[in-house]
Amino acid sequence: MLVTQPQLIDDFYKALCERQPSYVGSFYVAVKTTSIFCIATCHARKPKKENVDFYTSIDDVVKAGFRPCKVCKPLEKANEMPLMVKRAVELVKTDLTQKVKDTDLKANGITPETVRRWFNKHYGMTFQSYARMMRMNNAMKELDNGKKAIDTAFDSGYESLSGFNEAFKKMTGHSPNNEDGKTIILIDRLTTPIGPMFVCATAQGVCLIEFVDRKNLKQEFEELQQRLDGVMMAGENEHIKQAKAELAEYFAGSRQQFDLTLYTPSTAFRESVWQGLRELEYGTTTSYLQQAVKLGNEKAIRAVASANGQNRIAIVIPCHRVIGKDGSLTGYAGGLARKKWLLEHEAKFLSQ
């Protein structure tokens, strides 16, 4: 929405002039003289206060007719992982058998409080919870490869087998020697030219690819866990690795179709709508009406639109290719700015 409170406008303009990183994602500044919008840390020359408007969402600033700045790249960097957080994550991944304590972070020039705040905001968990999940995922792989539970426990940084068993059961719903637990849904984060995304996968396949700032994402995670009778855990498997590789190729313009194995159990109708979306050719568009007609029921437009909105696999199940019957952009969970970017991206590489 457009910011109209004078005090808030003053605060945002001050943050813009000082390039305060803590305000990134809190507002988008629209420069009326150039028709571009930026984030708080943009290094472009600062406009005069009377020449800017402030918005709290990308969708609203795009609807107002502004385009993203090529200097600060607001679509990509508004929710980007800060360098300090990246370094903390790398510390965990470097040796998954060891705990990373606050003293370890400080020894590497990392402020624990900053990392904790970022993880609470973007993952809904503490950094230590994330690290424990990564270690447990590694332990599960070792157990699957035949390693003994007691050896896995001590090699994963636990002081006793009982402590490891308790933590394992708390995260997975079963003991290390019992496979009748909840479905493990691994979650990891990747960076794209239009913003960071979460990718989730089970052993069966990829079950979610979403932009991290999608509205109601927390509810979507809860619904996914309920439908799959699963529990989410930070980690990575072969499906997630393949998703990252194929999405990188898509954004580079070298991939037009995806070969990912998807795991998206739902109602028969929704699955038919999603399958229809997967059959849409790269660089083409359709409408809700055309989707409904293809399914044999032209009156099912609202049901089709609802099914599109329930799609959890952004880009790979390309609901961004659905536009209004008059050719206008329609709602997109990732934001209209991203939808416009994706359509232009595909049109550019299709023409080549």
Rank of each mutant, 00 (worst) to 15 (best):
Asp10Ser: 12
Leu16Tyr: 01
Leu16Ile: 08
Pro21Ile: 09
Pro21Asp: 02
Val31Cys: 12
Thr34Gln: 09
Ser35Arg: 15
Ser35Asp: 15
Ala44Trp: 13
Glu50Trp: 05
Asp59Ile: 05
Asp59Val: 06
Asp59Arg: 02
Asp60Gly: 13
Val62Met: 04
Lys63Thr: 13
Gly65Pro: 13
Cys69Lys: 01
Asn79Lys: 11
Pro82Asp: 07
Arg87Trp: 00
Arg87Met: 10
Ala88Asp: 05
Leu91Met: 13
Leu91Val: 08
Lys93Phe: 09
Lys99Leu: 13
Lys101Ala: 14
Leu105Trp: 01
Pro112Ile: 11
Val115His: 00
Arg117Met: 12
Lys121Gln: 11
Tyr123Asp: 09
Gly124Leu: 04
Thr126Glu: 05
Gln128Cys: 08
Gln128Gly: 02
Ala131Pro: 06
Arg132Trp: 07
Met134His: 10
Ala139Lys: 04
Lys141Phe: 09
Ser156Met: 10
Gly157Lys: 11
Thr172Pro: 06
Pro176Asp: 11
Ile184Tyr: 03
Leu186Gln: 06
Arg189Cys: 05
Ile194Glu: 00
Gln204Pro: 05
Gln204Met: 12
Val206Lys: 01
Ile209Ala: 00
Leu228Ser: 01
Ala234Thr: 12
Glu238His: 14
Lys241Asn: 07
Ala243Asn: 02
Ala245Pro: 04
Glu249Trp: 08
Phe251Gly: 05
Phe251Thr: 04
Ala252Asn: 10
Gly253Met: 09
Phe258Ser: 00
Asp259Lys: 11
Arg270Trp: 12
Gly283Asn: 01
Gly283Leu: 02
Ser287Gly: 07
Val293Ala: 07
Gly296Pro: 12
Asn297Lys: 13
Lys299Trp: 12
Ala303Val: 07
Ser306Pro: 06
Ala307Asp: 00
Gly309Asp: 11
Ile317Ser: 04
Ile323Cys: 04
Lys325Asp: 15
Gly334Met: 00
Gly334Pro: 03
Lys340Glu: 15
Glu346Phe: 01
Lys348Asn: 04
Ser351His: 15
Gln352Pro: 06
